[in-house]
Design a protein around this nucleic acid. Structure first.
Lengths: 210, 210
DNA sequence: TAGATAGCTATTGTATGCAATACTGCCGGC
DNA sequence: GCCGGCAGTATTGCATACAATAGCTATCTA
């Protein structure tokens, strides 16, 4: 049998489709069509859809299947602070000695981001890597799970509202400030900038306040 | 068709079995036997199992199905502060005017708990109601979802380690102190006691440190 | 002409069937 | 006597089949 269940792959693929809009907000998911397109049967597909509904990236309408939830700026406004608080908490719970090893690695990613910004490379993926690295030493797997569950919800708004590069320049600067604060052992400063980093993204989102 | 999907009912039923130990820690879940016992087919049962694995109440072992995770005091030690922080956050995000209406209702539940403590009634359910009421006015549904997902993980440890009444008396007192702090508009005091309430439960857990 | 309704199709929710892997018990070798 | 391999069974993971509702179209009525 497959060592990696089909539903896991499907879950990732469908997440991608929701994030990049191939499954647009408000759309119903047709299980038969999607299964045929993905070359699988409905069973593992439905398992993936249920998983996505559990995470909030889809909603289940009894008798009508699954649909992509409509955009709601209010929801975005609640998601950003939530993720900010969760990441700040993860940072608080990371031991100082573990944190000490991070700033150099973080800045290395920041360098890559700066380079990519100049070259027009993949910024979003590097931003993800930076945040993943920041949280990588947190000893509470359940908190990390909650963060991983929440991030895609937010990324959907980011993908929809700006192509992904909008505030990347400022973001790099903030990332460097966070690393610097960690170097100084100033955890509360790092958290503050981290929260500000997320909230600033929210401000961009609100500008064309759809 | 069923207006409420079978998987939802099953999810609740299986949650109950995990919490009360009818599905003991470390046990494998046999889909055929369980499906027969519950009088359903494997399909909706598996859907429920996948949902539980997403929440962490089961773990999926590829090729070997689902199993109830073993107890791990370290995990409990991480879950209690997590839930404490999440509930405190929900409290911080509840508007003062909404909070003002809560203390009386909270104390009413505390009264019921005191009565139940004397009569030997259902304490656990009332404790749940108290916490649900405390969070009921939080305007961030995603945070509430995370809390609801995390709670059963923790309840499994509570159910396993003491029959459910152990520290109920002290808990009622702390609940009243939280309500009193809310009445005074002292949110940080309320949060502090709330966190202490959860952490004290953890202390009880550690005593016979299995 | 607008609205309701009946019949038909599309789609979901559940059940069953099938193939491949994992477990169990036994036998043989060392 | 213990470990490794092997056959048979049990169990999972995926695919397909079936039943019932949701949605749509077209007709009929007021």
């Amino acid at each position: 049998m497959a060592r990696t269940p089909l539903r896991s792959d499907l879950l990732e693929q469908i997440t991608g489709r929701v994030l990049d809009g191939r499954l647009p907000a408000g759309a119903r998911v047709n299980e038969v069509h999607l299964a045929k397109e993905l070359g699988v049967s409905r069973t593992p597909l439905r398992e993936a859809l249920i998983g996505l509904a559990d995470r909030g990236l889809l909603v289940s309408a009894p008798g009508r299947g699954f649909l992509v939830p409509p955009f709601d700026v209010g929801e975005a406004r609640r998601l950003y602070p939530l993720l900010a608080e969760l990441e700040a908490l993860a940072l608080r719970w990371t031991s100082p000695v573990e944190l000490a090893g991070l700033p150099d690695a973080l800045d290395a990613v920041s360098d890559e981001m700066a380079q990519a910004l100049a070259d027009g490379g993949d910024l979003s993926g590097l931003d993800d890597r930076w945040h993943a690295l920041l949280l990588s030493r947190c000893p509470n797997p359940h908190l990390l799970r909650l963060i991983e569950q929440t991030k895609p919800l937010l990324k959907r708004y980011e993908s929809a509202y700006f192509a992904g590069d909008g505030h990347a320049g400022e973001s790099i600067g903030e990332h460097r400030r966070i690393a610097a604060a960690l170097r100084d052992g100033d955890l509360s400063a790092a958290s503050a900038v981290l929260v500000a980093n997320w909230v600033k993204a929210l401000a961009y989102l609100g500008k064309d306040g759809r």
